[in-house]
Amino acid sequence: MTIKNNRFFSSASFAAIEKRRQFRYARGFVWTYWSVIGAHFLAQLFAFRFLPYEAAAHDFYLRILLYPTLLMCGITAAAHAILVKAERFSFFSIFSAGTMISMIIVHLNMDVRIIAAVMLLPIFASTLFFRLSLTWITTALQIVGFCVLYRWDFWFRSYMSDFDLLAIVLFFALSTVAASFIIVSGRDLAFDLEAAMFAQQQLLVENTVMSQRSKTDALTNLYNHMSFHEFYDKAMEFADRGAPFHLALIDIDNFKSINDTFGHRMGDTILATVARVIKDRISPADIASRYGGEEFALLLFEQSFEEAYALVDGIRAELAKSYHPELDGRAVTVSVGLKSYSNTLTKENLFEKVDALLYEAKRTGKNKVASGALTV
């Protein structure tokens, strides 16, 4: 994965997370409205039953309690439906609903001097979405709602002094400025967080690449000498628990002659060719490594000895019939030593015996597999 793709993945993931977060907040607003309506219903009922209240019972239950509550419930239900069915209009519907609910609460409690401050809450609530345009729209909705109350609600206007009117206008302005500052600061924080996440992801990718490079041979893309011994140790541990394996050593015949005659560049090409044949033949469960020079080591799992033998002999045979024009039409052959794990052998003993089998294959003519049981 390239750094450019990492950047795209990081930004796309961050945007998706942000969208889900804003949807949860929007849904939370709807449930908050239901809670406010319920709390207001109970508060009004408590005030009528236990506190001095001027309204008659009939007027209270219909005009103050039932009708406004049903109206607020209808407004909230409409906002909820828009959130579910038409998400792109959800923000406007939610804050419009909040404005109308605030207007109703202010109208019903106009004798409470600071009740108009309720209309400031949607402005601050809009900062959760980190969108300046949404905050400005919310502020405009509150101003329109307040003007409607002040223009057409005589009783509300009668409770407002000139000082109250000036203070509320200033509160709207200051609240919008404060909310905008919170949004800008939040955006900077979110940008810094995204940058930190990207840097961490980039560092993780680089560490993974470096770790992979430290475990593999650059020429053949097989595991290197150090990695082989790590896998070998693990194989011995699992074998002791009942999961045996087979160890094979493969050595290119006459490799020094190839280097001396055709140069080290051609020698590298032959090494890469042999490695490719090995990789194509082994299963995903097997481990292949460049042990050193022209020698390769294989750990073969989940197969019988006969299957392991057929696998390494197939590698030998394929290489033996592949002729290289660069080598004056000659083929590259390999000699192989193969032996299965036995609980009577230590890690060192097993390797020594396979190495001795490899030497036997070399000594007795090359281009063959020596296994102690069979020699081809």
Rank of each mutant, 00 (worst) to 15 (best):
Q202W: 02
A173W: 06
I114P: 07
L134I: 10
N221S: 13
D164Y: 00
I123V: 07
S185T: 14
D153T: 00
L166W: 12
S126V: 00
S133R: 14
V144F: 11
F154I: 12
I168F: 15
L222V: 00
R113N: 14
W155R: 13
V209N: 13
D162K: 06
A116I: 12
L121I: 15
D217T: 02
A140F: 09
V177K: 04
L174A: 15
V177N: 07
Q212A: 09
M197E: 14
Q212K: 13
M119D: 01
A117I: 09
M160T: 03
L193W: 11
Q200H: 14
I182R: 08
M197A: 11
G145W: 00
L219E: 06
Q142G: 04
Q201A: 10
R157I: 07
D153Y: 02
A116D: 13
G186R: 04
I183L: 03
A167F: 10
F156V: 01
L174M: 14
S185M: 11
T138E: 06
F156N: 02
F172T: 03
A173T: 10
I183K: 01
G145I: 02
E194N: 05
T127W: 03
I168Y: 13
W136C: 12
M110N: 14
R131A: 09
D188W: 10
V205I: 11
L149P: 01
F198R: 13
D192W: 02
T139H: 09
T127V: 04
M160D: 06
A167P: 01
V205E: 13
W152T: 08
G186L: 04
S133D: 12
F198C: 08
Y223S: 10
Y159N: 11
W155Y: 13
L149Y: 01
L204W: 08
L193K: 15
D217I: 00
T216G: 03
V205C: 10
I168M: 15
N221C: 08
F191C: 05
T135K: 01
Q201Y: 10
F172K: 02
H225K: 01
A173Q: 06
I123E: 05
A195G: 08
D192Y: 06
A167G: 05
T138G: 00
F191V: 14
W155I: 07
F130P: 03
L141W: 02
V184D: 07
T138R: 01
M197P: 06
S158V: 09
S175C: 05
A179Y: 02
A199N: 12
L134W: 12
R113F: 06
Y223H: 12
V118F: 13
Q212V: 05
L189H: 13
L222W: 05
V177G: 07
L193S: 12
L132H: 12
Q202C: 05
D217A: 03
S211R: 15
V169T: 15
V144K: 03
R151D: 11
A173C: 09
